[in-house]
Simulated scan of single mutants.
Amino acid sequence: MRPGLRAAREAGQEVWIAFGGDADQPWLRPLRRGFRHCFAALRDEAGWTVLEPLSGRLVVMRLAVPAGFDLPGFYVRAGLVVAGPFEPGPPLATRLPGLLPMNCVGLCRAVLGAGAPFALTPWGLFRRLTKIRGEYRKKVLTAAAG
């Protein structure tokens, strides 16, 4: 393994998943309001990277903000629901590729790694990420968190 690749894999990362969205596509209307879309934000020692799956393309942005910037708090102030931080899981070797479509939920699950909960909709992913042993985690940000 190349030294740069090893360092990147060993670097501590946090994953935050943001939920929101209006029904800008007709096929999104049946989904729960406020949970029609999700995307991932990754923080490492150098700063923030956002992975935003849009209809027909994937946008990957390295944000030009200081590494200590409170991006999850910014998203909460913008009206999104944010869950995290989560530690990305290790890759899992499988015999067959995944058969689920690559949508916003699939991308967020891929970023979280092999231990990500199964979900088909953003609301389902949110519920499974924030639920542990029948209780809701206190990982969902509020405007007062910092």
Rank of each mutant, 00 (worst) to 15 (best):
V15I: 10
W16K: 03
A18K: 07
V59C: 06
T49I: 09
T94P: 03
R62A: 11
L92I: 12
L100N: 06
G134Y: 11
A83M: 01
L31W: 03
P53I: 01
I132H: 08
E14P: 02
G34K: 03
E87A: 13
F19A: 01
R109H: 02
M61K: 06
T94W: 07
R57V: 15
P91E: 15
A78R: 10
V82H: 10
R9F: 11
P88G: 10
A64S: 12
C104F: 08
P91A: 13
A40H: 04
G113A: 14
P91Q: 05
P101M: 00
M61A: 13
Q25A: 09
R36T: 05
R6H: 07
F118W: 12
G106L: 00
A114L: 03
W48G: 12
L96I: 04
R29D: 10
P30W: 00
D24T: 12
R77Y: 11
P53C: 08
L96T: 03
P72R: 08
E52A: 14
P90G: 14
L80I: 05
L92K: 01
P72G: 01
E10Y: 06
T94R: 15
A11K: 09
W123I: 13
D70Q: 07
P66F: 07
A41G: 12
R6K: 08
A18S: 04
L58I: 03
P85F: 09
G113H: 12
R95Y: 04
A93D: 09
G79R: 01
V65P: 01
L96G: 00
L54D: 01
L28H: 00
D70P: 13
R43W: 12
A83Y: 08
L71E: 11
R32L: 15
R6V: 15
L107K: 03
D24R: 07
R36I: 04
G98H: 09
L107W: 09
D44Y: 12
D22K: 04
L125T: 05
V111N: 04
V76L: 08
T121G: 14
P53M: 06
G106A: 03
F74H: 06
A7H: 06
F86D: 00
A93M: 04
V82A: 01
A64V: 03
V15R: 03
V105I: 01
V15H: 07
L99T: 09
D44E: 14
A23I: 08
G134L: 12
P101S: 00
F69S: 06
F35T: 05
F86E: 06
G124Y: 04
R9K: 11
G20S: 08
R128Y: 02
R57P: 02
V82T: 02
C38M: 02
P91R: 10
V76T: 10
L120V: 05
V15S: 02
F39C: 02
R62K: 13
R33M: 08
K131G: 08
F118M: 14
L63K: 09
H37D: 04
L28E: 04
R57H: 10
Y75L: 15
L129C: 03
H37R: 04
F118L: 15
A41S: 15
M102K: 13
P26S: 04
M102A: 12
E87L: 08
L31D: 04
L107Q: 06
R9I: 05
T94N: 06
H37N: 07
A114I: 07
P90W: 05
A41M: 15
R57W: 08
L80K: 07
Q25C: 04
R127K: 02
L125N: 11
